[in-house]
Nucleic acid binder design. Structure first.
Length: 453
RNA sequence: GUGGUUGUAGUUCAGUUGGUUAGAACGCCUGAUUGUGGUUCAGGAGGUCGUGGGUUCGAGUCCCAUCUUCCACCCCA
């Protein structure tokens, strides 16, 4: 009835001020990625559903946005009323919006395997869509910034990821965060050691919640998920392991002594720490966290997550190693590792902590203010000269009262105004006003350019 | 997807047990100040109370549906 416009649930517009802040984040991330030799890649917003489904688990399939076929999309359906959604879907939709950037990347690698040189390093900054129920820091359309290396199993990649995380967050002014590191092999090793092999995913889902719901509840959930009392008994000392990374590693080595996989995981973690140290990395914020599990089923080795402390928002970054993601597309044994920043959450965090620098917000440097048609006309030449020197300049387009033009500059946070009237035109000395201090001086166009360059 | 929550001016919010013409602050516009913004003062504009139904003599207020917001679960950036 109402023709008031609205947005789909969980989506947002980004106004000029927000875009300035987002670009500041994006440029920072892009700069770091490129410093480490990653090259940009973009893939379509939509993929064939055959590419997307089955990669994210049953939950993930539910969260995929499907795209209705074009044209008479019901033509292939015989008796639509009798069909269940599950049977109907493949007949009316064959495309979907992408759910993350990693699966399309794997698809790209497989399709272009003869064209790319391995190891292949790419970064990708694009929106993804999930039909989740929105909450704070959780949207239906959001941007991911992925960096992945595929075609090598070198642990240098893992170490470099830690370096990139530190570097990016440092540049953004964040200091109070924790990079959590774990390894799926360690988790597998634990399930073997406690006599619950094959229960890995149940185990992961439960212990992932340790810091959220506490030890008791986790044990309850493990029991609900079918672990034996004996196994649960054996889990307790593992979850209670404390100490610094080195101590945790030593303790786990004893516990996992019988598990080949588990020991391999421990060794990888040690190697990553050692490599990062050799790269002169700051490891003070990196924490070997036994309870870090992560949901995505394709991870097989290292897993990462970043938690910003003292901010009530979910993780701002996650990633890990996957040994066989391209396998489902017919290209087995391609190990890759990567991670992703969530721009939207990073934005919320920086906003909450007031970490956006002033410079990231100023757009126009100078506004030319005029009194009448002749002075406006004169201003056009001044604007052209400033712009030629690369100075972001605006001239007020209407004939308006001075007051209004000043207010405009004020609202837009423009730091300098150049006032042009008959006096200025006669003397060629323009009034150059610092909007913050209110001080004015008479300067020639060249002098103004020098000041602003 | 399950359970709960929210919606009143551009924004943040008041609005009594259902009762006449729905208020405030901030913002916006105009003027005091026709060559000077951010302060002050005076005035002004702006609302089919998310939307659609229902109960009632009467609904912003009660009921139902729907959309939206936020929260918990699930899961995740």
């Amino acid at each position: 009835m109402s023709d008031k416009p609205s947005l789909p649930k969980g989506t947002r517009d980004f106004g000029p001020q927000q875009m300035a802040k987002r670009n500041y984040i994006l440029n920072t991330i892009r700069g770091v990625f490129e410093t480490y030799g990653f090259m940009p890649l973009e893939t379509p917003a939509m993929e064939n559903l055959s590419v997307l489904t089955g990669k994210y688990g049953d939950e993930g399939d539910q969260l995929l946005f499907k795209i209705l076929n074009s044209g008479d999309y019901l033509s292939k359906v015989e008796k639509p009323i009798d069909k269940s959604a599950k049977e109907l879907l493949p007949k009316i939709a064959e495309k979907g919006l992408k759910y993350d950037l990693t699966v399309p990347f794997a698809r790209y690698v497989v399709m272009n395997r003869h064209d790319i040189t391995l190891p292949f390093k790419r970064y990708q900054i694009q929106p993804v869509w999930r039909a989740d129920r929105p909450q704070k820091g959780r949207y239906r359309e959001f941007f991911q910034c992925d960096a992945d290396v595929i075609g090598t199993d070198s642990l240098i990649c893992e170490a470099e990821i830690i370096m990139m995380m530190n570097s990016t967050l440092g540049k953004l002014g964040l200091s109070d965060y924790t990079i959590k590191l774990n390894n799926r092999k360690v988790l597998t090793g634990i399930t073997e050691a406690i006599g619950a092999p094959g229960k890995e995913s149940d185990f992961c889902v439960a212990i992932d919640k340790l810091d959220k719901i506490g030890l008791e509840k986790v044990l309850e959930e493990l029991s609900d998920r079918g672990l034996s009392d004996d196994s649960i008994q054996k889990v307790v000392p593992i979850l209670e392991i404390t100490g610094d990374t080195q101590e945790k590693i030593e303790k786990l080595k004893t516990i996992l002594a019988t598990s080949e996989t588990g020991l391999a995981g421990i060794q990888e973690i040690e190697a990553v720490f050692s490599l990062a140290k050799t790269m002169e990395g700051d490891l003070s914020k990196v924490n070997f966290d036994i309870t870090l599990a992560r949901g995505l089923s394709y991870y097989t080795g290292a897993i990462f997550e970043i938690q910003v402390n003292n901010v009530k928002i979910g993780s701002i970054s996650g990633g890990g190693r996957y040994d066989n993601l391209t396998g489902v597309f017919g290209m087995p044994n391609m190990s890759g590792v990567g991670f992703s920043f969530g721009v939207d959450r990073l934005y919320d965090v920086l906003e909450e902590l007031g970490l956006f620098p002033e410079e990231s917000l100023t757009s126009t440097q100078a506004l030319i203010i005029h009194f009448d048609a002749p002075s406006q006309n004169f201003g056009l030449g001044v604007a052209a000269a400033l712009r030629k020197s690369g100075i972001k300049t605006e001239i007020y387009p209407d004939k308006a009262k001075i007051k209004k033009q000043f207010t405009y500059a004020d609202k837009k946070n423009i730091p300098y105004t150049i006032i042009i009237g008959s006096e200025e035109m006669a003397s060629k000395n323009l009034t150059f006003r610092n909007m913050q201090t209110g001080t004015e001086e008479k300067l020639t166009v060249d002098q103004i350019i020098e000041k602003l360059s």
